[in-house]
Amino acid sequence: MLTCQQVTRLLSEAQDRKLRLKEKLPLKLHLLMCAGCDNFHQQMDFLRQASRRYSVAPPNADDAE
C-alpha cells in the first residue's frame, strides 16, 4: 500500500518519465481513495500548464487587453 508521501514522489516522476505498470496500478488505486493526492495530481498538471504558459511568453498587463 502506497503512502501519500510516496504518491507525491511518483506523481512528480510521472511528469518526467513513463511510469511502469506495476507503479501505475497501485497509484491509480490510491488516487481513487485519496482526495488529497488526487488534488495533488491535478496540481502537478497545473504546474506544467502554468510553466508552459509562462515560458512561451510571460503574460503581463499589456498583453491582457
Binding site: 503512502t3 508521501q5 510516496q6 488529497g36 493526492c37 488534488n39 495533488f40 491535478q42 496540481q43
Partner: peptide, 12 residues
C-alpha cells in the same frame, strides 16, 4: 506518511 488533515492539497 499520509497527509495531515490541515495540509491536504486542495482543489485549485
Amino acid at each position: 506518511h499520509h497527509w495531515n488533515p490541515a495540509d491536504r492539497p486542495q482543489a485549485w
